[in-house]
Design a protein around this nucleic acid. Structure first.
Lengths: 279, 279
DNA sequence: GGTCCGAGTTCCAATATTTGAAACTTGGTT
DNA sequence: AACCAAGTTTCAAATATTGGAACTCGGACC
């Protein structure tokens, strides 16, 4: 059992709770990945509650399967590149990410600010895409990155539009680190914001995660009110303020609606022959 | 078995084939991902040789583990976003990708062309990074994307610098589709290029994959001559020719050497704060 | 040179898990 | 109402996983 690991919120007792051998193997993968750097077998062993031969076999299997990669020079394991390939496939099949691309671009052009597309993963916010007004697309520099749910615009908005019991479960898993003065550090503080967010249809990040950084976020909902993700426009207190961001609310909402509609209608046009291209 | 297998000896035909339950589960994941679009359970079933309940349980497990995602509206499965998260971790831990970033940028600035970083994954070329010049080439490739090994600059160069038996194994797995007039469509045609590539230390793509697209590529090798990946500069026949690209050979080689050195020296200066950014 | 030590690896019988034929449920169609 | 296909559950038999213990290997330290 690990002690305080670096960024993981409360380790979810039931979620990671292995279903079967596959679950345990994936736990090992997650653990290696969680180190954030290549690790020796013994390092993983000391953090794992699996017996030595069992862990050893899992790591062998995962390495065989290229989910882990072994560096023979350093004798370390790191998450394997098969993951990168699979993730590319996952990302390009995500109707949300695919459909949203153009909308994000348009939004960042129109506002001149950075735009994020995110969804809820486990108990974290997972960023699916990001557009800077000036810069072109960056792939995994930002896509795939995770952030806290309780102190980001997208996170709070998604919580507010989640079924109440689900939201409670997610909130129970937050670590509530106080990043700034403004960070909300309890479920009740969060809960208090929800009615307002639900009524307006948007929410703010009031420098709750980083000083000087503010944002406005809206949920992306299906017609059946199922939560698909969220959208945000970020700026700094140097350039604008909450009232300024609020002016973008309608544009954000209609973009989110458009994305939701297209994502649902998206019947996978086969024009993306996932055949290989490039030199 | 149990021989020291450095790079997939011969088991590779059945490569994905079973290592135990975990292997089978990952096969299922790969299969779903291979569809390239969300799929129904029965579609997977008809393409799998697993019995119905077995496949069913695997897909349940994978869904529980968020390696797959189930769309209740459409009743389809697609690769899950947990993969995107894990891949982000894999990518950011890949010393190659991390270390190469600045070099790629410099190279694309200096040459004004598109630069690719790739490694060998299974029998494919897997692109780890790409930098566009100001005027990007008409082409689509990004991190996580795979391409053929036998008709790309990076692929051929990597094959040439692989131990002979490994190269043969990889070549035996190529499909040798004739993309263009110039495509090499047999192991022997490939083999004939290797001595030249090894002697020069670089290789070309002579419009073998896409008409009008040419490139020069060099391998990235450790001091112990272990193959880490490859690097390429791509252009079009409109803008230059092979002789023109060849002028970049020395710059490419020294960049590759620098990347290799840094990648090996990279002892993980704990830049691992993993601090989450973005609202 | 020998001995000790810890990391990594293999063995193998006890045990818990996976397995899949068959039966059942669900939702849509004739 | 009867039918069919897709998806889900059951349960004993078959099999894979498990982990204590013993072994190998290479380096550190007398």
């Amino acid at each position: 059992m690990g002690e305080a690991s670096q960024l993981t919120p409360k380790e979810d007792q039931m979620a990671a709770a292995a279903d079967g051998t596959v679950g345990k193997a994936l736990d090992v993968l997650e653990q290696v990945s969680g180190f954030g750097r290549p690790v020796r077998f013994s390092e993983v062993l000391s953090q794992s509650d699996l017996p030595k031969p069992t862990l050893y076999r899992f790591m062998q299997t995962l390495t065989n399967q290229r989910m882990l990669e072994y560096d023979p020079d350093r004798q370390t394991y790191a998450p394997g590149t098969r993951l990168v390939r699979l993730a590319h496939s996952a990302w390009s099949q995500s109707s949300l990410a695919q459909v949203a691309g153009d909308h994000l671009h348009a939004l960042s052009e129109a506002t001149g600010e950075t735009v994020h597309l995110a969804k809820l993963d486990h108990a974290h916010v997972l960023y699916l895409d990001k557009r800077n007004a000036a810069q072109p697309v960056e792939m995994y520099s930002q896509a795939g990155k995770i952030g806290p749910a309780y102190c980001t615009g997208v996170g709070k908005v998604m919580l507010a539009f989640l079924p109440e019991d689900s939201a409670e479960v997610v909130m129970a898993q937050q670590s509530f680190h106080r990043y700034t003065e403004a960070t909300l550090t309890s479920p009740s503080a969060l809960r208090a914001e929800f009615p307002g967010i639900r009524e307006n249809g948007y929410g703010f990040d009031r420098e709750e995660h980083e000083p000087g950084i503010i944002c406005i976020a809206v949920p992306i909902l299906t017609e059946g009110h199922r939560l698909l993700g969220a959208l945000s426009v970020t700026s700094t207190t140097d350039r604008t303020n909450l009232a300024g961001l609020e002016k973008q609310a309608d544009r954000l909402k209609s973009t989110a609606r458009a994305i939701a509609t297209e994502a649902q209608a998206w019947s996978f046009p086969d024009h993306m022959t996932l055949k290989q291209t490039g030199p």
